[in-house]
Amino acid sequence: MIARNIKHSVNSLLFVIAVMMLFVLFCSPDALAQRNRKKPAGVSASTKSLTVSSEANAIVWLDEVRRGVTNAEGKLALEKISAGRHTLHVRANGFKERTLAVAPTQRGQIEVRLTRTTDEAELTFQQAEGAREKARDDESKRAAAELYRRAIQLRPSFPAAHVGLARILLDLNDYKKALAEIDEARASRPVYPEASAVEGRIYRYAAFWDDAIASFRRAIREARGFQPEAHTGLALLLEEKGMNEEAVTEFRIALNQLSDSEPVVYQLLGAAYEKMEKYKEAVEAYEKYLQLAPEGNLAPAVRSVIDQLRRQAEEQSIQPD
């Protein structure tokens, strides 16, 4: 069904590198998967902090946005949490995953007690997620795919495993099989924002842009607006179509929802502003990236252009209207 070569035309080396980094970013386990929410897409000016206390090296999601991993003492501080209700999800290898509601009034430390599990399907799925996150070559990616297939064999109705398998198949450029896994995930979970977002990414990398846009918009609709993976993917597509103003809007929505947990999106925003010759805004976005990820993979490239952009921004500010 899909055998077309990917043909992407971009106008800057930074943008190409950023897209590659974004691909890695969104391939981390359930990194940006979203559930239905009754929360508007924007973020309130009123924020709070929480400290999650659970098992050591546990992965923590807030509203299905991955926020980090607990330290050796099982602690992880979460900053810039908007007002209102939230959903906390915690996963640690060898334990049953747990999801719990966070009340609007809750602050300080929140205890998340996990119980050991002997569920072979769950344990295999956890192994697959860890293998996918660490995979750097095709051989290790195929090994991760086999772990997902084993988990699905043990539990045929396992939507998260189907989506995880779709992500690794996308990484292996097997678009047809990746789309088939999305269909399998939807068979047991028809409304699944993460699945729709991953479907959008598959279509985008296969160069079916209209289908990709439809899938990203479906993901946003299913998640009632809160789906940063879809907003980011949509922004990249709009930028590729030359719709830079619209792309900036989508990047900013994603950044609000991510609460600074993914600095690379600031780099993408800066690249979009750079294309629009809005140099002051580009500098601000790049500076924010460097503030959040001073040792990030894109930091050297950003530092190499930011001084020139500052000069261009200064020249723009003194030019007569």
Rank of each mutant, 00 (worst) to 15 (best):
H8Q: 12
N11S: 14
S12G: 02
F23T: 14
L25R: 09
F26D: 09
S28I: 02
P29L: 06
A31Q: 10
R35D: 13
P40H: 04
S46E: 13
S54L: 10
N57S: 15
N57P: 00
V60R: 02
D63K: 00
R66N: 12
G68L: 07
G68K: 02
A77R: 09
A77C: 02
I81R: 04
S82A: 12
G84V: 10
L88C: 02
A92R: 06
R98N: 08
A101M: 09
V102W: 09
P104V: 15
T118R: 11
D119L: 05
R142S: 01
A145P: 03
E146R: 09
E146Y: 01
I152W: 02
I152F: 03
I152Q: 04
L154K: 11
L169F: 06
L169G: 09
D171S: 14
D174V: 13
K177P: 00
A178F: 05
A180D: 08
E181F: 01
R186F: 14
A187G: 06
P193T: 03
S196D: 15
E199Y: 05
A206F: 10
A206W: 11
A207E: 13
I213Y: 04
I213V: 15
A219H: 01
R221I: 02
E222N: 05
E222C: 02
E222I: 01
Q227E: 12
T232M: 09
T232H: 00
L238T: 01
E240M: 08
K241I: 08
G242N: 05
M243R: 15
A247W: 05
A247S: 10
A247E: 03
T249R: 08
L255C: 08
S259E: 04
G270L: 12
A271P: 01
Y273A: 09
K278N: 12
E284W: 03
E287N: 13
L298P: 00
A301V: 12
A301D: 14
V302Y: 03
R303M: 13
I306C: 08
D307I: 11
L309G: 06
E315Q: 14
I318W: 10
